[in-house]
């Protein structure tokens, strides 16, 4: 288990992470969601010891992670930067990875490279944006560490390759469970894949619960403005859309047993709920 205790991090005046407390349990898939600049990457970098927090601690099974080789060996983070020498060929990078991660499966990496259509004879620096992402995904799916952190894994991937990535991820997870943390803002793509959702906004955690729990909480009501205004009194309103005399209101909470006549109720899907939650 990875535990984050009261982490704070500022860049100059910007408070990137504000007193973050989180737990990542074993063998679950987490979605780390937030808008651009919410603090997702900073958090992943702190977990993996690439960036140091101003205060607080990050523990793996009770032991501090930073500068702890044993703990760091259990983690893999795909980041926006390619940490391999640029002139290296993809196939050499795969061999190299084996040196650092003893469980790295070169054969599997070759196999999925073929599925993605990546020529492993190419040099890393010559790869397109999409294929640079794919190259990192191939490494991440082959390292076989107990914790794999994906920072924006599908950046620049076309629809077919995104599908292939989610398929391989689930296949891998089903055969040999591990903990995955996927940071993304493409919630509609990951909502069916993840067990647990963490939503981060302006450096603060605003939601940390199972996908199912969160989904059971949101609903929308729509109808004439007068009826809706009367109904929403005292409820936790996330947002309001008006169109002429019609009003649609997004509400957080359990649906009432008796809804007044003339009001339509629909459940909120994760995408709508997320947009309402992270709106400014």
């Amino acid at each position: 288990m990875i535990e984050i205790r009261s982490i704070n991090k500022s860049y100059g005046k910007l408070r990137a992470l504000d007193n973050i407390c989180l737990r990542f349990e074993e063998n679950k898939i987490y979605g780390l969601l937030g808008r651009n600049g919410a603090g997702k990457t900073t958090m992943l970098n702190i977990i993996t010891g690439r960036v140091f927090a101003d205060s607080g601690e990050v523990l793996m099974d009770g032991n501090p992670i930073p500068e702890n080789d044993q703990a760091l060996q259990q983690l893999y983070l795909t980041s926006e930067k390619t940490l391999y020498p640029e002139n290296m060929k993809v196939k050499d990078a795969l061999k190299w990875s084996k040196q650092f991660y003893p469980e790295f499966d070169i054969e599997y990496a070759q196999k999925i490279a073929t599925q993605f259509g990546l020529d492993t004879g190419k040099r890393i620096k010559s790869l397109s944006t999409g294929y640079t992402s794919i190259f990192k995904l191939i490494i991440a799916l082959s390292v076989n560490t107990p914790y794999i952190l994906f920072d924006e894994p599908v950046l620049g991937l076309d629809a077919n390759n995104r599908e292939l990535f989610y398929k391989l991820l689930i296949e891998k997870f089903s055969n040999q469970p591990f903990t995955a943390i996927i940071s993304t803002h493409l919630i509609e793509e990951v909502s069916s894949v993840i067990d647990h959702i963490v939503i981060i906004k302006d450096g603060c955690i605003i939601r940390d619960e199972s996908c199912e729990e969160l989904l059971s909480k949101g609903y929308t009501v729509s109808g004439t403005a007068a009826k809706i205004d009367a109904y929403i009194c005292g409820k936790d309103v996330l947002g309001i859309d008006s169109l002429g005399g019609l009003k649609t209101v997004y509400i957080l909470g359990n649906i009432d047993a008796d809804i007044p006549e003339g009001i339509e109720v629909t459940k909120l899907n994760l995408q709508k709920l997320y947009i309402q939650l992270t709106n400014l």
Binding site: Y166, I170, F173, S174, N175, S192, V193, I194, D195
Partner: peptide
């Protein structure tokens, strides 16, 4: 199997 369902629909095996 559960794996076949989850892989083909790309959903979490728990679901």
């Amino acid at each position: 199997s559960i794996t076949e369902f989850s892989v083909s629909f790309k959903i979490n095996p728990a679901t």
